[in-house]
Amino acid sequence: MKQTPKISNTYTLGSVEQGAECCEPIPHFSIRDLAVSYNQKTVLSNVSLDVYKGCITALIGPSGCGKSSFLSTLNRLSDMVPGAKVTGTIEFEGQSTLANNYDVESLRTKVGMIFQNPNPFPLTIRKNLELPLRERGIKKKSVLESKITSALKEVGLWDEVKDRLNVSALSLSGGQQQRLCIARALVLEPSVLLMDEPCSALDPISSGVVEDMIRRLAGRYTIIIVTHNLAQARRLANYAAFFWMKERVGKLIEFGQCQPLFESPQHSLTAAYVSGERG
């Protein structure tokens, strides 16, 4: 099933219809006319796009243009920011997530999030992974054990930590901490992963390891990644969305398949940004 996002005149539509090679363009999130404001000050407006199932969508653009604000509306983490107001519609699995009575906690178990700075809890590695499971009422030792093991294997951390699951997660290196955080999101078996510059606080080698891992996760998970690293976006993403500040308000300028967007951008701002002339 192919669906074309409503074309609005605020952004340029790249080539979406063909679909990227790895995934069918079935919308997982459908976002229409989204706007975010903090204390009546609009920081992002008029965003409409579809996030396709199983694909990696990269959000690119200079800092301060609302990419992270956009990302945090998808799991309604924006609720936690005092004075934040989100308008428009976000449809996820056929339900409008911005509705007042929408079950936010179950949304957050289906939509995992990885932050810029690795933020494992100050607990042991095992407890970090157990906590979200226990919260969901999973108490059985064997179930916990198998879920933890498979999550750690999935992020390639198992061999490194299997002998020291009971040491503090804070004793791991930065890259390991970040992979642990991804594993912590994965134990809940989400369908979507939101990543807010997951590699930018890491050294180049760890960053490469995490990036490889993200690539492995593609297909099984829908991934939305904010990144400042254009080369990384190009390497990883199937789709890309380019944000830019216009009159101090973040706007979506262009959205489409990654390769065409980088190679033959439709919009002059995109062209300037991806070629390194601006931003």
């Binding site: 936690m80 179950s106 957050r108 932050f115 933020n119 906590l131 919260e135 955080c181």
Partner: peptide, 11 residues
Amino acid sequence: EWRRAGAALGL
């Protein structure tokens, strides 16, 4: 960040 991490995990 731990509060945000907790919320993002649906805790």
